[in-house]
């Protein structure tokens, strides 16, 4: 009896050591990227800390469903995104997330003119500071900001983004396109408020 107990404890310890090794080797190297993503989603350091901590705790708890050597970064981003949505829904006390379809149909209705106005002159925005660009990005609706962060900042492929946010690849494509256009509009507004002039 004593012997069995000893074996069981020993194998549990071995299992824990193995989980800790995977955690350390495959999950922790992505912590800065996750924190950066969390910060831009929440725009608040304390909330970003909580979100990252929750993500890592969940990842550890469900580590057995992770296959070593696969895409740990995308897996962690998916956990974080889900945690954010749950928290966001709780805080906003709304049953559904941001009404993406409403935004899309608005821009669809003015698609041609909207596209035409997007040829943002580079000298207008190249002089902008990081903080100003970050503010413009953070002013986008969360679903649009998310795809820009995942693609342009974190370098995920469309396929990875589709898996992280649970949408079809075609939607990733169109959402990203619209998000960049919206961001250009925001940058133009910010640049204009900062006194940059557009000569067109």
């Amino acid at each position: 009896m004593v012997s069995l107990q000893t074996m069981s404890v020993s194998s549990q310890e071995e299992l824990k050591r193995e989980k800790d090794r995977v955690f350390e080797k495959e999950f922790l190297p992505h912590i800065n990227a996750l924190y950066n993503f969390a910060f831009h989603l929440t725009y608040n350091e304390e909330d970003a800390n909580d979100l990252v901590q929750e993500t890592y705790m969940k990842a550890y708890r469900f580590i057995s469903s992770y296959v070593e050597g696969t895409n740990a970064k995308a897996w962690l981003f998916k956990i974080l995104k889900n945690a954010f949505i749950n928290e966001y829904r709780k805080k906003s006390k709304r049953p559904t997330k941001v009404d993406y379809e409403e935004i899309v149909s608005y821009h669809d209705s003015e698609d041609t003119s909207y596209i035409g106005s997007l040829d943002l002159r580079e000298e207008i925005y190249q002089g902008m500071l990081g903080d100003e660009v970050t503010k413009a990005l953070n002013a986008l609706p969360v679903d649009f900001k998310t795809v820009v962060l995942l693609c342009d900042i974190e370098g995920f492929t469309y396929e990875e983004i589709a898996k992280i946010i649970d949408i079809p690849i075609g939607t990733v494509r169109s959402r990203l396109h619209r998000a960049r256009n919206m961001l250009k509009e925001k940058l133009k507004e910010y640049a204009s408020n900062l006194g940059y002039k557009e000569n067109r």
């Binding site: 800065n32 924190y35 950066n36 925005y125 820009v148």
Partner: peptide, 22 residues
């Protein structure tokens, strides 16, 4: 424009304290 975003958007790093807490 893509490079501009990549370079200009502020990158935040996690604190050592959070890593220790985790």
């Amino acid at each position: 424009f893509k490079q501009f975003l990549e370079n200009k958007v502020v990158k935040k790093c996690v604190s050592d304290d959070l890593i220790s807490r985790i």
